[in-house]
Computed example of a mutant assay.
Amino acid sequence: MDRLRALECFRKIAERGTFAAAARELNMTPGSMTKHINALEDQLGVQLIARTTRRMSLTEAGETYLGRITGILDEMADADETVRDLNEGPRGRVRIAAPMSFGIRQLSPMIAEMIDAYPELTIELELNDKVVDLVDAGFDIALRVSESLPNSSLIARRLCGYSRVLCASPAYIAKSPPLTRPEDLLNHNCFVYTNDSRPGFWTFSDGEHERSIQVKGRFYVNSSLAKRDALLQGCGITLTPRLVVEDLLKDGSLISLLDDFAPRELGLFALCAPQRHKLRKIRTVIDFMVRKLRANNDQSIR
């Protein structure tokens, strides 16, 4: 029995949920996959996968075994890639998790250029405004937009800064209480982005002093694009990255507010696990994003 191949088969079956799906991904036949698992179970003397004609699931022993071998297989894959990096350019698959609005408006075009520049690279991009656990979800890089990041064991690199704008539709402003200072936001229906580091706390500066206002409203959402659409209905006000609404500000669909009070800037951060950060393909992807973002002439990016 090829022990390493058997471990790879077992892990892939656990990830994909069926022998057939795992076999396709590893370019094997289901019969060959079954032989590897049977041999592994015989050697261990325990059943790892409970199989019926309709479904399969990991046994308690299988769950325990999967948890122990996953890190070992990852370390071996990292070791292989590190050695290859000594003589080759960046290659292989890089899994990236990114916020929806940034991914659609900036990252997707950037990736198109990246894979053209590096023909041996494959990028798997998942767009989701939910904050994912980078390691548990199996991502190489997680991109986060935030004022700051909590302390963790992850490697974090600040790629650029994003200016924010307080904005609403002309129709909302026409029917709402006056807004001349940040404290007036307490009288408004504010759309709150729930993935902020402190949801509902908006910080402004007059050039000398900062002040934080805890706003409230009747729409709490984890998507900047959803806030953008809601603003156009004329029922609220929000603080959002200028990049998300720049076109609507230019055509007059939205107007910026409290221009004498600058909102605190957001940072775009790339996070990765320490052992993954050493790989050339990971460093290449992050360096490429930094170059493209900092060469951008968009005034909303700093």
Score class of each variant (00 low, 15 high):
L127Q: 09
K130M: 10
C160Y: 00
I173Y: 03
W202I: 10
G161L: 11
D136T: 14
A137L: 05
N187K: 13
R157V: 11
H209F: 11
V132Q: 15
A171I: 08
D133N: 15
P178F: 07
A112L: 09
V135R: 08
L149T: 04
V135G: 00
P119M: 09
D116M: 12
A142R: 08
S153E: 05
Y162V: 05
E208T: 12
S163C: 05
R157M: 08
P177M: 03
G138V: 02
T203H: 05
D136L: 13
C160L: 03
F201K: 10
A117R: 13
E183R: 13
T180Q: 15
F191T: 02
S108W: 06
C160N: 04
M110A: 13
E124T: 05
S108R: 15
V165Q: 08
P119Q: 09
H188D: 06
S169Y: 11
G161F: 08
H209L: 10
D136W: 06
F201A: 14
A174I: 06
V145C: 10
S163M: 03
E126N: 15
R164V: 03
S108V: 12
R158Y: 00
A156K: 08
L121E: 06
G161K: 13
I123K: 07
S197K: 12
L125W: 07
S148H: 09
R181Q: 15
L149Q: 04
G200F: 01
L159Q: 05
A117S: 12
V192F: 06
T194K: 12
N151L: 08
S169H: 11
H188M: 09
G207T: 10
P178D: 09
E208A: 09
S153L: 00
P119V: 08
R164A: 12
P170C: 14
G161A: 13
R144F: 03
P177L: 01
L159E: 03
L121P: 09
R157W: 05
N195K: 15
A117K: 11
D196T: 03
P119R: 13
A174E: 15
I141Y: 05
G138E: 03
Y172N: 08
N128V: 05
F139E: 00
W202P: 02
E124Y: 01
K175G: 05
G207R: 11
E124S: 08
I173C: 10
N151S: 09
A142P: 00
R157T: 13
S148E: 10
L185Y: 10
L179A: 07
T194H: 07
P182C: 01
P177C: 02
L186C: 00
I115A: 03
C190Q: 00
G138F: 02
A156E: 09
W202M: 12
P170M: 13
T203V: 09
S148I: 01
A137E: 14
G161H: 11
I123Y: 06
N195L: 11
